[in-house]
Computed example of a mutant assay.
Amino acid sequence: MLSKGLLFQYSTDRIKGQLLDWSKRLKIIKGLVEGLVYLHKHSMLHIVHRDLKPNNILLECDMTPKISDFGSAQTLCSDVTEERTSRVVGTSGYIAPEYASRAVYSLKTDVFSFGILVLETISGRKNTILDKRGDTVGDLVRDAWCLWKDRRLHELVDPSLGNRYEVAEITRCAQVALLCAQEDPADRPTMTDVAAMLSSESMRLPMEPKQPAVLSEGSAGEDTYMSQSSRTVDITITSSATVLTRVRIIVDPEV
């Protein structure tokens, strides 16, 4: 199937973003959930991607998402394992706080990045980290939490969607995204939990997202970018398959 492009070409572009109605955006969100559940649980390797961002999400012509670029990926010995690295890689706005500050990563690192991707898909905005003010989660997360708390989530929605969306679906997706983007990884759900929460409208969400920490006084810092030169691993994640086929994963060990 031919590629439609990368998610970043649509998620914050005012013109291309109009091509993504709410049903397509919801399909992308649920497709990413299925892919991450496979990586974290069903692959039996407990793969953590560590650099989830719109640039690494390929969209097929039917808007089925595929997770790509596994050059920073690592495997864990269990789904609750935390590892420390001497080489932090990732992109400001998507990188989990504990990974950015303490170089500690786990499956919950991907959960945080997923939460940011969902908020961007809903809002058409980028998440900016205000480094010089001690920011750990980003302005989009803070704004989304305030709007959710005040029951004004309609103000978060990408204007290009107009009124063509289900309020209940937007609200549930945004609340789940905020749970995923919690500062403490212990407060974040697993991707299996996320799949359950998004698959049933009648399921009561188990908790409410905590308020992000208050920013310190000072000027906003510039975005930072941390990356490395790495190979892309051949892997395909599709939202229609429960089991991957013809997958080749080659992950370089940490040094």
Results as ranks from 00 to 15, higher is better:
residue 190 T to D: 03
residue 32 L to N: 03
residue 199 S to R: 12
residue 21 D to P: 03
residue 10 Y to K: 07
residue 181 A to I: 09
residue 152 R to K: 08
residue 225 Y to W: 15
residue 16 K to M: 12
residue 152 R to E: 15
residue 39 L to N: 00
residue 154 H to W: 01
residue 157 V to Q: 14
residue 8 F to E: 07
residue 175 Q to G: 02
residue 232 T to W: 09
residue 44 M to R: 07
residue 57 I to D: 01
residue 68 S to R: 02
residue 131 D to K: 13
residue 212 P to Y: 10
residue 66 K to F: 07
residue 55 N to V: 03
residue 47 I to Q: 08
residue 64 T to V: 15
residue 120 E to A: 15
residue 165 Y to W: 12
residue 194 V to Q: 04
residue 25 R to A: 11
residue 189 P to D: 03
residue 167 V to K: 11
residue 23 S to M: 04
residue 232 T to I: 15
residue 223 D to H: 05
residue 246 R to K: 10
residue 188 R to S: 08
residue 59 L to E: 10
residue 248 R to F: 12
residue 51 D to R: 03
residue 65 P to C: 05
residue 253 P to C: 05
residue 193 D to A: 06
residue 225 Y to D: 14
residue 81 T to I: 08
residue 87 R to N: 06
residue 2 L to F: 00
residue 74 Q to N: 12
residue 229 S to G: 14
residue 240 S to T: 10
residue 118 V to T: 06
residue 46 H to G: 00
residue 2 L to A: 07
residue 247 V to K: 07
residue 107 L to D: 00
residue 234 D to P: 00
residue 160 S to K: 12
residue 82 E to Q: 07
residue 59 L to P: 10
residue 52 L to P: 14
residue 236 T to R: 10
residue 141 V to R: 00
residue 6 L to Q: 05
residue 112 F to N: 01
residue 49 H to C: 01
residue 163 N to H: 14
residue 125 R to H: 09
residue 146 C to N: 07
residue 250 I to A: 04
residue 57 I to S: 03
residue 198 L to M: 05
residue 100 A to I: 00
residue 98 E to K: 04
residue 7 L to K: 09
residue 124 G to I: 06
residue 46 H to I: 01
residue 65 P to K: 11
residue 31 G to H: 14
residue 83 E to I: 10
residue 215 L to M: 01
residue 244 L to E: 01
residue 127 N to S: 06
residue 206 P to C: 00
residue 3 S to M: 04
residue 90 G to T: 00
residue 77 C to Y: 02
residue 24 K to E: 02
residue 230 S to R: 15
residue 177 A to K: 03
residue 145 W to P: 13
residue 154 H to F: 09
residue 79 D to K: 07
residue 111 V to Q: 10
residue 217 E to W: 04
residue 158 D to A: 09
residue 49 H to R: 01
residue 216 S to Y: 13
residue 217 E to I: 01
residue 117 L to R: 01
residue 182 Q to F: 03
residue 222 E to Q: 15
residue 228 Q to I: 11
residue 155 E to L: 13
residue 142 R to K: 14
residue 20 L to F: 00
residue 86 S to L: 14
residue 134 G to V: 02
residue 253 P to I: 02
residue 183 E to P: 02
residue 185 P to Q: 01
residue 119 L to H: 04
residue 33 V to N: 03
residue 116 I to S: 09
residue 164 R to I: 03
residue 138 G to D: 02
residue 72 S to F: 13
residue 112 F to W: 08
residue 209 P to R: 00
residue 21 D to M: 08
residue 251 V to A: 15
residue 195 A to Y: 07
residue 191 M to C: 15
residue 246 R to T: 07
residue 145 W to I: 04
residue 158 D to V: 14
residue 204 R to C: 12
residue 184 D to K: 06
residue 202 S to L: 15
residue 55 N to P: 04
residue 130 L to Y: 09
residue 150 D to S: 11
residue 113 S to G: 05
residue 58 L to D: 02
